[in-house]
Design a protein around this nucleic acid. Structure first.
Lengths: 212, 212, 212, 212
DNA sequence: GATGAATGAGGTTTCATTCAT
DNA sequence: GATGAATGAAACCTCATTCAT
């Protein structure tokens, strides 16, 4: 399960666990500020208030730290999406058109909130999908979880859906929403976020529920 | 106009122009194969069949080459989108529902073709938007062009549109399409491309033209 | 206070302090032997028995080492001038003509001794005043100290002086003496040092004390 | 006579002579602006409006150009000293004390004028005495000429002199004057030039002519 | 002759990693 | 365990010089 190799120490005492976690936090900050490639192990150690050598007794290099940071990030994202929505999306009752609209709205806003956690870290993570196989494997796994959740939600309301191909639909609505929302969070835009989010909700609603 | 600084050689002899372009091509290949951070100036020179010093007389470092590669890439993308569509999208006659569907179809397929040019390069370019201000400025400029083209197209058929906020609509349909299509091109997927593309076309069609 | 930048390591362990000082000594030797421009960082490290990287963890490049070497040199010069004179020049009692002659003599000989410390380093230092602003600032500061000392000495015996303009006098006698003595130390000369020094003493004596 | 080696072209046509001289002028400017070590052959060629290769067909590298620049500089200095003095110093009639004072005054002022020609170049030249044997040889030769002229002048008026050791006197008065005057020209000073020059004249006068 | 493109040795600098204390 | 000093391979970059056109 752990990617860290043999030589990396697995802390059992609480001090060691504390130290390991301070390394991960320091690394997270630096990856946000300066990017993965702009950060080096010595800096991470310094930011964590540790000697360089100490870093290496916990991690073989900065990659396993990054993987750990990614895991923490996705854990947080998932919690946010599930808890921030005003209603329990997965279990809400869908009776009428307005309920569907509300569901879309809640989902989009929950995703928007989730992307406020750390857009800069998100950017580093998604960029690294491309350049590192280990990162790719990890993120693909996390994305599969999200995709399954979306598919499950769609299946649950399949009676209402205007689309046939649920798997493909899950794919395009999740990718689209993620990308549109990430851009809002990441850059200054000329169009206010609210207008973009409204249109995104409209797009998702009409696509999923309006029969032609 | 050019981002390259004062010290960069501006070739006057045809041999120099040839050399500069061979550096750009070699760099493009390597950026595709190994990514921007995985490539160094020495390798680029070697791939172009040149001494290291020659590289440095044309470019201060690998960044300006990358900027040049980006410019070339967007030039190619634009040409492909405009020329690969089976019909002249910008000037096609829109009379009935099927014409709108056809327009969406042609656009999506043209974009799909465009993304076949070099998905790996595309990934490097979009990843770098986050880590380098110069790259960001350049890409934002190119993206603005695309966005304007989409807006212009929507304005031309505004009588048919179901959406009110054309600017926001342009933003979300372009971002969504780009992202969905890029993923198809970039990774192996369990769902066949055709199914995803069909759903994408459906989503765009319903969002843009189906009045609720 | 220190000119070295942020990245330069500030040694805390005694081994580090030792290492830093061995770099400075090695650099001093090489600057004497081959001049500032003829010496490079790799050589300095090698002479100090260190890896190249070690040099760079203590100094950003050879300039700050040179500044350190200069500081040490001036410290040594000052000590020599103050301690090598046969009498305590600054506090000697001046009663008669012979005392003035003796004072001049002692000063000139102390300066001559001081310039035996390292004429080659002295030459490098004075040459660099012209080409590097940081070196210029540092040396100007050191020279101001010497000039102030001379001025103080002249003020103390102002009743005996034949000159009115003490500041200007300090300037010319220090510059002249330094230059004449430096040349003696630096090059082989046809005229024996003793003859030159005697004339220099005569010049200073007549200029300062002989009323016309 | 020439230091340039075999491969350097000796121009015979007037165009070639013109080109060679434009290289020397360009080099002189750059040595003044950026120092010898801060200037390279390519820049010299560019400043002269020539291709790099052309530089190398006239000079093997920048050193022989520097030697040529030095020769020109000393030629100019000598002319200035001889022609700028208000009277013909070498042949003026010395009858009374005031004539001696005037002679000193004229000499000092002529030297001051001479040092206005190019203090920055002067600084580069004197600095290079130390680091390059060829430059040392050349400059020592030029300095010997100056020294001989001073000795000749002193011999001519030996009846009036208070000093016995003419050779040593020539040495110290020339070195002192050169150094003091060079500093005036080279740096901004707190004491006005006029005060320093007056004291310098006083020092020379009393040393040379006032019998104790 | 003149041009400017190309060379590559050699200097400069970084940083992941090891190791003595 | 923790420290931070030391390492050295590998990157970066420059420039004196050569050479094809």
């Amino acid at each position: 399960m752990d990617i860290e190799q043999s030589k990396a120490r697995v802390p059992v005492q609480s001090r060691g666990i504390q130290t390991k976690s301070s390394i991960i936090n320091a690394a997270k900050e630096l990856f946000e500020e300066k990017g993965y490639h702009g950060t080096n192990s010595k800096e991470i150690a310094a930011r964590a208030g540790l000697a360089t050598g100490t870093f290496y007794s916990y991690f073989n290099d900065k990659k396993p730290v990054f993987l750990e940071v990614i895991r923490n990030y996705y854990r947080e994202i998932t919690e946010t999406v599930l808890s921030d929505a005003a209603v329990d999306i997965l279990n809400m009752e869908i009776r009428k058109k307005e309920d569907l609209k509300k569901m879309i709205h809640e989902l989009v806003r929950a995703l928007y909130n989730a992307h406020s956690i750390s857009p800069k870290l998100h950017r580093e993570i998604t960029a690294m999908i491309y350049s590192d196989p280990e990162v790719e494997t990890l993120i693909k796994g996390e994305e599969k979880n999200s995709m399954n959740a979306v598919r499950a939600l769609l299946s649950k309301i399949s009676g209402r859906l205007a689309v046939k191909d649920i798997d493909a639909a899950a794919e395009i609505i999740l990718r689209s929403s993620e990308e549109v929302i990430h851009r809002l969070r990441m850059f200054e835009n000329t169009i206010p976020d609210e207008r973009i989010l409204n249109e995104l909700e409209d797009m998702l609603y009409r696509y999923l529920f309006v029969k032609v």
